[in-house]
Structures are given as C-alpha cells and as structure tokens.
Amino acid sequence: MSKSGFWHDVKKYRALLLMLAPAVLFFLLFAYVPMAGIVLAFKQYNYSDGIFASPWNGLNNFRFFFESGDAWRVTRNTALYNLAFILVNNLLQIVAAILLFEVAGKWFRKITQSILFLPYFISWVVVGAIAYNMFNYNVGTINVALEWLGFAKIDIYNTASYWPFILVAVTAWKALGYGTIMYLAAITSIDTEMYEAAEIDGANIFQRIFKITIPNLMPTLIILVLLAIGNIFRGDFGMFYNMIGNNSMLFSATDVIDTFVFRSLTTNNEIGMSAAAGFYQSILGFATILLANYAVRKYDKDRALF
C-alpha cells in the first residue's frame, strides 16, 4: 500500500505516460492554452492593449448574435445538420465495414478501401468547384444532361430545399472511407472464435452480423458518437463556406453558426464578437456532451466516457 504513491505510479507507468505525452501536449497547446482567450468574448479588443489588457465590455459582444433574430435559426441548423451527419455517416460506415468484412476477398477489400478513402483527401475548395460544375444552371453537368434528355432544367443554386440533401450526401461521400476503416478495424478485432462457434451452431450470415458483429461494434459506435456530439454546435466551416459561399438564396436552409458569424464579422472584424460566438458554441457543446454521457451512463455504465 505504501508503494502506491503518486511518484511510484509515475515511475511504474512511465512508458505509458510517455506514449500519452504527445497527445496531452497537443491538447494543451491547441485546446487548453488558447482557452485563456475566452476573456476576449467579454472585451473590447484593440491591437495595442492586446488580449489581456483590452478594456472589458460586459456582455456587449454577445448582443449582435442574439439580437439578429437569427440565433435560433442558425443554432438549430447547426445541430440538425450535425445530427444528420452523425446518423447517416455512421450508418453508412458500419454497413460498408460489415460488407467489406463479410463479402470481400483480400484484394477486392484493399482496392475498395482505397477508393472509398480517396474523397477524404480532396479539399473542400476543390469539392466546392466540382459541385459548381455539376450543379450550375447554364453549363452544369446535371442540367446539360437533363436538357439533353428533354427534361426541364433545375435551378439548384437558387433553391434552398435541395441543399440539406446535397450537403448530407457530400459529407457522407467524403467521410465514408475514413469511418469504414475505423469500424473495419473494430470488426477485425472481434474474437473469431465467436464466429466459429456460431457457425457450428448453424447461425446464418445475418444472424452472425446481428448477433455478433453489431453488438461488438457498439462500444466503438458509442465513443465515436459521443465525441461527435460534443461538436454538434460547430458547423464544418470549410464545408459550408466552400459549398455555399455567399449565396444568400440558400442561407435559410444552409446557414450554420460558423458561417453566420464569419459573414457578420468579416466586414468589421471585431475579434471580441467572434470570440463571443465561439464561447456560445463551446458552452452548448459542453452541456450536450454532459447530457449525452449522462444518458449513456444510465443505459450502460461501462460504456460512458466518464
């Protein structure tokens, strides 16, 4: 008992701690240290006084956001988009991973995996340009094809209602390969004896999938979803901005907190006001993750994050 002091533990687990160090350092540098910048949300920032010495101005920086009348709309959009992303992406990724695991021969699996992974490396700027060339009214691929087939053209860039589907589809396409690999890794680590036993007992392929693979994927799924839920109030700015840009015809369905704030503040670039919006997102995200974790705990204590 006397040997289990703090330093004893540090020494005993030094290899593990060392392995942990880069990750800890990363989060310290990029997540904890910048946290001090939260004060900016309550300050009238100017360059000469800097972050800590600029004068305080109370809740003034938050006013633009809540008085705009758009706060609710963009917050709702952000959360709904992220929920759709989480749902669709994870579903597709799990299906793809199971299919690859069950169906494929080694070569087929490798090649498919690489092809699925490819979109992950295409930047949103390029995806935005590709989308424009597909969807624009005059010379877009889709409209040219429709016209050639004798159908009426569709004005995608001026019709907000198409965009939730387009955005969800594009995100799913881009994230599919990455997630599939994660789930595939989780499936591969499932004890093969279970499958063998099931086969001997006469379980068919669907029974194996639903009784063994999926239950064993639950921990991975829960962790990934919990992590994603923490970011549910953060829109993927690169995606939204490159796909939509400043096309105000689409804002009603595509505006998320990040694009709204960017637009409001690029002209007067009030750093305090952007900090306030970021603060708002963090608070909401923090609350959601606590709630989600609490819910998971209720359901199954071992699977909660903390």
């Binding site: 633009f64 409001s264 002209t267």
Partner: peptide, 16 residues
C-alpha cells in the same frame, strides 16, 4: 457595432 454587423447580414441575405 452590433447593429452594423446585423444590418450587413440583412443586406447580404435579403437585398442581394
């Protein structure tokens, strides 16, 4: 400042 930000947003969203 707050009002100017919001008015700018309205111009972009409704006037353009």
């Amino acid at each position: 400042k707050n009002e100017v930000s919001n008015v700018g947003n309205v111009m972009l969203r409704y006037a353009i």
